[in-house]
Amino acid sequence: MVVMQQFMQLTNEVRNVILEDCLNRYEHGKKFDRKNYDDFNQVKAETLPLFEKIEKWEEEAQAIVHKIAIFPNQIQNTKDNLEIMILHSYFHDVRKKRFMELYQSVMYNLDLVINDEK
């Protein structure tokens, strides 16, 4: 039960912090230059803990996949889409329509997990 509570807390954090920060950064943040060494290092430093948290979420989700409302491929796709969104949010190298499709997909899967618990 404690494991499930910790997973749900992590899921809420991924949804309400990481995902929302991505959207906010994409819409209002600075556009970083991939070829600028300083920009690259700043993005790398800022994103490392995010990627680690997403990796942890994916591992925990796969470990309890039989208890949650999504399938293993949805877990993997959510992780992949979140990682892509993080990079797009810094570099602004995708159209808003595509970014929002990724956002909606990740939000949908995270909401499935969150709402299933209630």
Rank of each mutant, 00 (worst) to 15 (best):
F91D: 06
F51L: 05
L50F: 07
I54Q: 02
A61Q: 02
E101F: 07
S89F: 12
V94R: 09
K96H: 10
Q104W: 05
Y103H: 14
L112C: 15
Y103N: 06
A63T: 02
I54S: 07
I54C: 08
K79C: 03
H92N: 14
E101K: 12
A69I: 03
E52C: 00
V113C: 11
M100Y: 09
I64V: 10
K96D: 02
A69R: 12
E52F: 02
N73A: 06
M100C: 03
Y108K: 15
W57T: 07
Q76L: 07
K67E: 11
V94F: 01
L50N: 09
M85E: 05
E60L: 10
M107G: 02
I54D: 02
L48N: 12
H92P: 03
A63S: 13
V94S: 13
D80N: 15
E58I: 01
P72N: 10
R98L: 15
I86Y: 05
V65P: 01
L82D: 04
N73K: 11
A63N: 08
F51A: 00
K56I: 03
E46N: 12
V94E: 14
I75T: 06
P49K: 10
I64M: 13
N81H: 12
L50Y: 07
V113G: 12
I86A: 05
H66E: 12
V65M: 07
